[in-house]
Design a protein around this nucleic acid. Sequence first.
DNA 1: CACTGGAAAATGCCGC
DNA 2: GCGGCATTTTCCAGTG
Lengths: 90, 90, 90, 90
Amino acid sequence: MASYAVAADQLKSIIERIERLEEEKRAIGDDIKDVYTEAKGNGFDTKALREIVRMRRQDPNERQEAETVLEVYMQALGMLPLFGAAEKAA
Amino acid sequence: MASYAVAADQLKSIIERIERLEEEKRAIGDDIKDVYTEAKGNGFDTKALREIVRMRRQDPNERQEAETVLEVYMQALGMLPLFGAAEKAA
Amino acid sequence: MASYAVAADQLKSIIERIERLEEEKRAIGDDIKDVYTEAKGNGFDTKALREIVRMRRQDPNERQEAETVLEVYMQALGMLPLFGAAEKAA
Amino acid sequence: MASYAVAADQLKSIIERIERLEEEKRAIGDDIKDVYTEAKGNGFDTKALREIVRMRRQDPNERQEAETVLEVYMQALGMLPLFGAAEKAA
DNA sequence: CACTGGAAAATGCCGC
DNA sequence: GCGGCATTTTCCAGTG
């Protein structure tokens, strides 16, 4: 019977730890939002900012590969790639 | 009192119409998923496919503008744009 | 070389199928919007309507989670289960 | 010309602040994952744990929607409200 | 007409 | 390794 009590205590502890961490995470998420809002107020384009952040987060090699696949498909569809592939080889 | 009954009938009708339409919408969503799955089975890169679809959906001018902003930011951050801007002017 | 052409055709076919399906999906989305708009014109509260639809959509899921250990955990945490176990067996 | 430099500095600052915050956020996300992993090692069902956390998170929202016409609609549709209106007034 | 909040899509992760 | 789930991000309608 005591074991149930122990389990209940454990459970409570787990849930509370998670909730505390999630609260922190949410707070930081809000901070991030604030930075974007402030940036916007200073005339920056938040969508472009987000894209920059995303690009920097990615592995350059992966990004490169993804881009290459994309261009092959665009070629096949007759969509001119915005930029030539040739100069990349250089 | 009858007016309540009428309203209840109207309400039911509204809800059911929406639910029917949402069911259709969901079914089409499943179809789309199937196409991607099949494409994947044929060796296509679904992520790139999704990007192609997204690009074709976008207004070319908007895409162009967004890209321009992005490059300005990348320049300012010393991130070499993957492709030169010069050739675009051409 | 022909294989590239084939792949290009396949690719076009895939993209077009997706685009067609997405167009259908979008049209249905518009229909749904129309129903809400019309309902609003008849004095219904669209927000509440959406809530109703959401609730009815979620119900089946809740039934499925009946077999989880959820209730045991809720008991241990002093959260009353929404419904007694007895009535579920019924 | 100096203004460009200023803007570039501002931009760098913004990006770096976001990246720092995202790193913190990611770290906390990892901590949360760790708690779940540890709990699992102690015999808890992580899926049920997540459900508990979600339920506790949603409760406040449900309280807020108390003032909607939801119940009227539910009545009209023969859906019993989860809780009586009387106890809400309390 | 910009902004906030909510729905939809997409990405990433975990379990099988 | 893949399918399904959860999270995250994006989009869009409603609102001030």
